[in-house]
Nucleic acid binder design. Structure first.
Lengths: 345, 345
DNA sequence: TTGTAGGCGTTATCAG
DNA sequence: CTGATAACGCCTACAA
């Protein structure tokens, strides 16, 4: 009552294996009658062709490998959702490896994937790897000939396509928004100083402060290793620098910043304005709601898949690799003051 | 400078394919010298055995299929993290399909997976499927002989193992906690009334209200379809019933409840206490921080993997299927009043 | 219209 | 110690 391969089906039908195979693929060189007879029986016995064999034969897997630092970060979750959706739409499966921001796990994941189980790889690079600036293990994929597309956390020096967020401009615009709402002493707080993304955001912040006009303070950059000593670090900085505006390099830092400020009996945004990144649930639910950079993570996932599939299906084109950069939007909510048109520059 | 299969390697080494294969597997019937010669060359040429062929031969894939409603919900994200971690530890890969809570997508996912690409399936059932109480498509996996383990959102009537959270007791204990802190008019608000999980939580709530002692109000159950009309629905209920305690069936509802209450110039927990489920970031970052049920999602993911691998690797055992139920903890924070020992029952 | 043969890359068995 | 052969399940020329 259960048939697992063509041979068994063929025996029951008293046909050859190849005829059954062709009938199931609806080939015109098999008589219509036979075709329907075969298909009916196949259905009845719940026959499903073995993909492994098909893949081995065709050399394709219709599977995309995804290496991602984690899935709990809402940004990565959104990207993943986008990846899955687009992959499903294009009839690809995805296999996921979580690097946990560790280089060794990332390396293992690569070894796991480049042995024929996937047609291509999407990767966002682990913090550790970016800190160490060591991409040998990534080069292995390239050498192996497996198409690869980097997304969000990207590193140059690898022959592959990249998709990232325009983090520089995002931070630049966000900082300018703080300036336009009257902030003079703007700090940048970051738990991701070692990543490409963190670097771009910092640059954007610094550049914006360089704009003439307004008597701004010198840059105040607060780098934190993790969230445990967050409050302490920020409190110290707040007291020392009379900060009146904060650009946080991720969502959680922004939320913690709000909490810290309020714990000092200060008001957001009256005393201190706060802008974050990611535009996730935390931003929507915080009190006050958080002004934040929207990164279009879902779209990024989709685009990454499309680009990878292009490389998979048209591998010839040795055109130069592209680096596409996604624009961001600033979603203004209540953690920043209303804009004062008189002071816009 | 790149070798993709044993045949090519064998030619270079002037050996037979089978000898090379054995040498790479370090078989003692190949001379030590040959073995190292082969391995050296394999490394030099970057040879990686083709898993597809290996799998076809062995009939195993060392891959687990995961069908999950979504990955953005922090609870599912945590479960997924647990699944991935344990799978990696046991040297399994995972392929992920997101059902988006839609039955058709769930069905497609099943078809995608049971054709030999995975050794077993982990599934948490889509809302739609649970609403319709239709599990034909799930039965297909069972019929096909692929081991399957259900987690969190489970349905009976399927011959398989299940792992779920003790949602009944969780809600029961949470409701009792509200009672113990002096709440008399306790409401239950749920956006997941159609799911197994939502049902259990409601039952726990109702049972707790049935306890004698304290002059409690009748049950107040607020079922919402989505979050858009949330505020309106809750405001109406608050006005009508003088609610002083809320058990929310998920994290987001709890957060929205706090916001709604505060928007009415009421205080949490002084006027209304709130308890949620999931214990995610939102609970930790809200203001006041949220008293919440911890479900140990990560552990659930791990356990599900272990159980599935057991079935995969020892398929003979036709022992009865197990349904393991994970205990929960109540994490008390600031959205509930301090307990008044005098009123504990 | 149907069947036969060979091969995708690997491995287990058995022969040399 | 090494090599030839068959098999996993499927597909596609080509032959009948």
């Amino acid at each position: 009552m259960k048939v697992t391969n063509l041979k068994e089906l063929a025996q029951i039908l008293d046909l050859s294996v190849s005829s059954v195979s062709k009938a199931l693929k609806n080939r015109p060189d098999i008589s219509l009658e036979t075709r329907s007879r075969v298909k009916a029986l196949a259905k009845e016995y719940g026959y499903v062709p073995n993909v492994l064999a098909q893949n081995l034969k065709s050399g394709k897997t219709r599977t995309i490998g995804v290496i991602i630092p984690n899935v709990l970060d809402e940004f990565f979750g959104m990207v993943l959702q986008g990846i899955e959706k687009q992959a499903a739409a294009k009839n690809y499966k995805i296999v996921i490896c979580i690097s946990d921001d560790k280089k060794t796990k990332e390396k293992d994941a690569i070894e796991t994937l480049i042995n024929g189980s996937v047609d291509g790889v999407l990767i966002s690079i682990a913090k550790e790897t970016q800190n160490q600036k060591n991409i040998e293990h990534l080069n292995r994929i390239v050498k192996h000939g497996t198409p690869i597309v980097q997304f969000d956390r990207v590193m140059t020096g690898l022959e592959c396509d990249m998709i990232s967020v325009d983090d520089f401009n995002a931070a630049f615009k966000a900082t300018k928004h703080l300036m336009n709402t009257g902030c003079k002493r703007i700090a940048f707080i970051t738990p991701i100083s070692g990543t490409s993304v963190g670097g771009m955001r910092k640059e954007g912040y610094l550049q914006a402060l360089n704009l003439k006009g307004g008597n701004l303070s010198k840059p105040i950059v607060i780098e934190i290793k993790n969230y445990t000593n967050f409050m302490q670090a920020l409190r110290a900085a707040l007291n020392k620098n009379k900060i009146d505006g904060i650009l946080a390099a991720d969502e959680l830092s922004a939320i913690y910043a709000i909490n810290t400020i309020q714990s000092l009996e200060l008001m957001v945004p009256t005393d201190v304005s706060v802008i974050g990144f990611t535009n996730g649930m935390l931003a929507k639910c915080s009190n006050p709601t958080l002004t934040t950079v929207s990164q279009h993570a879902f779209k990024m996932g989709k685009k990454a898949v499309n680009q990878l599939i292009k490389r998979i299906e048209y591998p010839k084109r040795e055109t130069d690799y592209i680096h596409s950069i996604l624009k961001t939007d600033l979603t203004v909510r209540n953690s920043t003051k209303k804009i004062n048109t008189a002071t816009i520059q």
